[in-house]
Amino acid sequence: SELMNSSKLIRMLEEDGWRLVRVTGSAHHFKHPKKPGLVTVPHPKKDLPIGTVKSIQKSAGL
């Protein structure tokens, strides 16, 4: 199965306009000026399962 580095996923979010608002432990929480909701990324993780990545991307509207 495909894995993604959390840094790469965070870069994709930031390029889309998401900004880090809070860190709780290894959970990084992002908000967007125009899009609704809060997106949480486990970080640092070298090997996020593709299912997790897809669900984060979906929440972020990517």
Rank of each mutant, 00 (worst) to 15 (best):
V39L: 07
W18L: 00
S7D: 12
K58F: 07
P36G: 08
K31T: 13
L3V: 14
V23Y: 07
G37I: 03
T24V: 12
E14Q: 10
K8D: 15
D16P: 00
M4F: 11
A60W: 01
L13K: 00
W18H: 00
S59Q: 15
P33T: 07
K45M: 11
V21H: 11
K34F: 12
L3T: 15
P36K: 11
P49I: 03
G17W: 02
K35P: 00
P49N: 08
I50M: 11
V23A: 13
M12Y: 07
P44E: 03
L48W: 02
H28P: 01
K54Y: 05
V53E: 02
R11K: 12
I10R: 02
K8M: 15
K8V: 15
L48V: 07
V53T: 05
K35H: 04
K45G: 06
L48D: 01
E14K: 11
S6C: 03
E15I: 09
K46W: 10
L9H: 01
N5Y: 06
K35E: 02
V41I: 06
E15K: 11
E14M: 11
H32T: 00
L38V: 13
K8H: 14
V39K: 01
G37W: 05
V21L: 09
T24I: 10
H28Q: 07
R11M: 11
L62F: 04
S26A: 10
K31L: 11
T24L: 10
R11D: 11
S55W: 10
L62S: 03
E14C: 09
K34L: 10
S6Q: 02
V53C: 04
W18E: 00
A27Y: 15
L3M: 11
L38A: 07
H29I: 15
R19N: 08
G17I: 00
V39Y: 01
I10V: 05
K34D: 10
R11G: 09
I56H: 01
K46M: 13
L48P: 01
V23P: 03
T40E: 11
I56P: 01
H28R: 08
E14W: 10
L13A: 01
K58E: 15
G51N: 14
P49Q: 06
I50H: 10
T52V: 15
K31R: 14
P33C: 10
M4Q: 12
V23Q: 10
V53W: 07
P33Q: 08
S1G: 14
L62Y: 02
F30P: 00
L9K: 01
K8Y: 15
V23K: 13
N5Q: 12
V23N: 06
K46G: 10
T52N: 04
M12G: 04
S7Q: 10
R19L: 10
L48G: 01
K35W: 03
I10A: 02
H32N: 05
D16Q: 05
A27I: 11
H32Y: 01
L62T: 04
K8C: 15
G51E: 15
E15D: 14
M4A: 08
H28G: 04
G61F: 04
K58A: 13
P42I: 05
K58R: 13
V39D: 00
L62N: 03
L20C: 14
H28I: 06
M4T: 12
T40K: 12
I10M: 06
A27T: 10
D16F: 06
L13G: 00
L48E: 02
D16I: 06
L13E: 00
K58Y: 07
F30Q: 00
K8N: 14
P44V: 04
V39S: 01
G17R: 03
R19I: 12
D16E: 06
R22A: 09
K45L: 07
D47S: 13
V41F: 03
H29F: 15
K34M: 10
V21G: 03
S1Q: 15
N5E: 13
P49D: 15
P33F: 10
K58N: 11
S6G: 04
H29D: 08
L13I: 08
M4P: 05
L3K: 13
K54V: 11
P42L: 06
S1D: 15
P44H: 04
K45F: 09
I10F: 03
P33I: 06
G37V: 03
L62H: 04
K54W: 05
K34E: 10
E15M: 12
H29A: 10
K8S: 13
L62C: 05
E14D: 05
K34V: 14
I50C: 11
S55K: 13
K34S: 10
H43N: 03
S1I: 13
G37R: 06
S26W: 13
L38C: 12
G25E: 14
G37Y: 04
P36A: 09
P33D: 11
A27D: 13
E2M: 10
K54T: 08
S55V: 07
P36N: 08
Q57E: 08
V53M: 04
Q57W: 14
P44Q: 04
G61A: 05
E15R: 09
A27R: 11
R22G: 09
A27N: 12
G17P: 00
S59R: 13
G25R: 15
G25N: 14
G51H: 13
S7M: 13
V21K: 05
H43F: 03
P44W: 04
V41W: 01
G51D: 15
L48Q: 01
I50A: 11
K45T: 07
V41N: 00
A60N: 02
M12S: 06
D47E: 13
